[in-house]
Design a protein around this nucleic acid. Structure first.
Lengths: 270, 270
DNA sequence: GTTCCGCATGAATCGATAG
DNA sequence: ACTATCGATTCATGCGGAA
């Protein structure tokens, strides 16, 4: 029942708050930390050169509070510095492995409505990383929960490519399954892939979410069950926390910015 | 003219063959090297732990033969080893930067019809990396050649120009920017993003790396002009070489496997 | 109730100018 | 020279009001 769902929100630096959480108490961590040099007004901005050392204490605590069967989903993307992609995300992955994390998978979030712009040497950036880390090779995964209908794939929550995407790419889709196609026709649902097609939410309201609700929803369905605990150490306005609550999961949210903390407190769990 | 197009095919280890090519003689290198520990029969297989040291001598020679204005597109994806994604691609990027390469961009190839399958701990892998490396920040890029049709929204969009189309609100986030809507009036095409949606080709069963023609075609259009030179040091059956020729570019192809070399020789340049 | 249409907004990046 | 700020460029989406 919804009433049984526990929600704990903390105002403060997650490096300190996390120390107060019990070891092995969280089933899913899903977060989108401030990217390097971004959100200067609110988070102060972290220089790309110092990003790894800034994040490692956090990931160490996250490793502690996660259950052995749990999963950590990290949404991040490196920025361009002087014409090159920065390497701090790769360095972060390498360092987190040294901490004991397993880098299990990398999902791609294809942002269908990416930021506009034109530059002489690059195109618009339309994707972000969704890095999956685990504590052990045996982690919980409920694949059936995120199956997508095959027939009306377009209407499903995990949306398919938009109309223009189809117009733009006239190559032969579905021509490549060979004999296995018969297996698929008899099913009505299919497992998704590791590429997620979602638009960023840019509504007219006073705040915009870091990522669309469908994103945490998808991973919460995939990696937790009702009654499990979801943690977001950089909750922002609290999107993933409230999605977790709505789905009957306990939620723990942390943010260092008072405005976000207040916003998360007040947000109706509709 | 097509007749003027030069094609050089070599049978041998590209580390040796590349030494015979002139410095600064290639405009675009596009290749899909044998993935780690894959295709053992054909390439002998490279263990993930030795992949970086195996590839670095190749990339050093590629750096030499590339023009300062040229581009290197590397199609690669790390395999899963004992439940984890291997880190050799990230390590390779870090090491190639030490060689002098600039890691300019990472395109995503979304494989729309990836191979079906089911595993208890992961979904189907539907994307690969297309790493862009450059020798200098000033490289050739012909963006107009790869423009795509605009979305349907554009038609109604341009009927009425709103105030904010001319003067954008310096909005709350501070990300506001002014528009020059007059640039749009005659526009029916848009620039693409760094996510490519292509289906894999499966017609050529003989070749172990399924590389859809559209992929080299797109990068050849983007980074070269007719008369330029395209190199594929792991040409396989020679798809990118023949696409380059068909598009009026000179081509150099290398492969160590006699069967592939023969295949590339015989392939009609339709 | 549908569909249509107007419109603000988004983890962007480059190059020029200012301190 | 080296860093910080600012102006210029751009496309797709979902919302909300109108038809």
């Amino acid at each position: 029942m919804q009433q049984q769902v526990r929600t704990e929100l903390f105002l403060g630096d997650c490096r300190e708050v996390l120390e107060r959480l019990d070891e092995g108490s969280v089933d899913l961590i899903i977060t989108s930390p401030p990217y390097a040099d971004q959100r200067k007004e609110t988070y102060g901005g972290v220089h790309p050169d110092h990003y790894v050392e800034w994040f490692l204490p956090v990931s160490r605590e996250l490793l502690r509070v996660l259950k052995p069967s749990g999963t950590f989903i990290l949404n991040i993307k490196e920025k361009v510095v002087e014409g090159e992609r920065s390497t701090y995300v790769m360095e972060l992955i390498l360092e987190m492995r040294k901490q004991g994390w397993l880098w299990t998978e990398e999902f791609i979030w294809h942002k269908k409505n990416c930021y506009p712009g034109k530059w002489p040497n690059r195109f618009r950036d339309a994707w972000e990383r969704l890095l999956q880390f685990n504590k052990s090779k045996k982690f919980n995964m409920h694949q059936d929960e995120v199956m997508v209908p095959m027939g009306d794939w377009a209407r499903s929550r995990l949306k398919n490519l938009s109309k223009t995407d189809k117009i733009r790419d006239p190559s032969k889709v579905g021509s490549g399954f060979g004999k296995n196609i018969s297996n698929w026709l008899s099913r009505d649902k299919a497992f998704p892939t590791n590429v997620l097609h979602l638009a960023t939410e840019c509504n007219n309201k006073n705040h915009s979410a870091a990522f669309p609700m469908e994103l945490p929803e998808w991973f919460i369905k995939l990696f937790t069950q009702p009654g499990d605990t979801v943690l977001d150490p950089f909750m922002g306005s609290g999107t993933s926390i409230h999605v977790a609550n709505r789905m009957g999961r306990h939620a723990i949210g942390i943010d260092i910015v008072p405005e976000y903390y207040e916003m998360a407190l007040k947000k109706p769990s509709r």
